[in-house]
Nucleic acid binder design. Sequence first.
DNA 1: TAGATTGTTAATCGATTAACAATC
DNA 2: TAGATTGTTAATCGATTAACAATC
Lengths: 212, 212
Amino acid sequence: MNISPKVPIPTLERLATYLRYLIDLEASSIDTISSTEVEKQTGINAAQFRKDLSYFGEFGKPGVGYNVVELQSRIARILQIDRDQSVIVLGAGNLGSALVGYPGLGEQHFNIVGVFDQSPKKIGQKIFHIEISDIARLKEINASLQARIAIIAVPAHAAQSVAESAADAGVRALLNFAPIILKVAEGVVVRNVSFLQELAVMSYQLALDIRR
Amino acid sequence: MNISPKVPIPTLERLATYLRYLIDLEASSIDTISSTEVEKQTGINAAQFRKDLSYFGEFGKPGVGYNVVELQSRIARILQIDRDQSVIVLGAGNLGSALVGYPGLGEQHFNIVGVFDQSPKKIGQKIFHIEISDIARLKEINASLQARIAIIAVPAHAAQSVAESAADAGVRALLNFAPIILKVAEGVVVRNVSFLQELAVMSYQLALDIRR
DNA sequence: TAGATTGTTAATCGATTAACAATC
DNA sequence: TAGATTGTTAATCGATTAACAATC
């Protein structure tokens, strides 16, 4: 298959997992792996692994396996992690600030080029060498930053309006940390990071455990 | 159906969403809603909503709908969010500290009762009124804290070993922020918060958009 | 009562996994 | 060549959605 039709989201998520795993393998100087080995080490079914890759072409050699470095760079290219991408952070509270300082982002070529907040106390201050800008000037400032990805780290009550400003400022993808369902225009991608939800799920599972 | 067999994870995740939505409704002094109304406002299919609830019993009145306050409190009880739960945070870096200060946790009755780190510089210091303890003393200290939920906010290379210490200290549920697949013993629940993965997915979707 | 909406069964859809011919 | 492992098709599994009798 040459050009990917619709790739399932779970496949894309696993692709990111494979990539991390391959980077570890490379660090351990392993240069070839089989899908069976992937299953043993990640717990992801071998057929699943092969199927996931099949959406994007052929990556392995029958009887041999996959070249670690090659597979790594091809997955990185598929996910666009082989090139720098500009990201802005909306909200300079505890969470927003922590994200600005998170080294993993840069490692994956997500470069934070701007941080915005509404509070006059924060505007003009710096976090990790990036100056906080007035969120009211988002559109104007992003006209030059040209970030297409924004991380929303404002309180729930402000999130919807911030999302709209972002879309208006040319942002096409929102990573939303606020516990709220965002309504966005066609063509804007949203992914939610809902750790409260995750805690709630665990909370239920924990209780189940006790009941039996 | 009286006692729930196996409830799908997506159902549990949506339950947490419904709960947030119902709290908003209550604040707007709305006391009854129909599944159709839920669909309009959250985008979640009405049949899905009814099916999700059906795993736990009967909640509505045919021809009328659901009582907001009652549904809210019943979902809270299902998810165990109606009572306080002790949580410890492992790792007092930027992310860990931000989580300790995150007000949403307390609002959902997740009370942070301890913060742990390995760095001698941090041990003994306070973040938001909680003193940072030595992670080497986790088992000893959690013997009295009795937290069964831990949030892992340490760097990837330390996460596996921290997870093992936590399990050894009696923790039964791990909310993992480190970009790594944790291997845990039977009976320990893990949920991952992988915003790097979410960014990667968005990055792919963004590129797709351009190609067409 | 007539209209609205539930809870649940059945149909549909999509994702995961098993099986295997092709191939190194 | 014989053994190993891929890529892909087919079978299975599970979740979502539509349809509708029961009921307020």
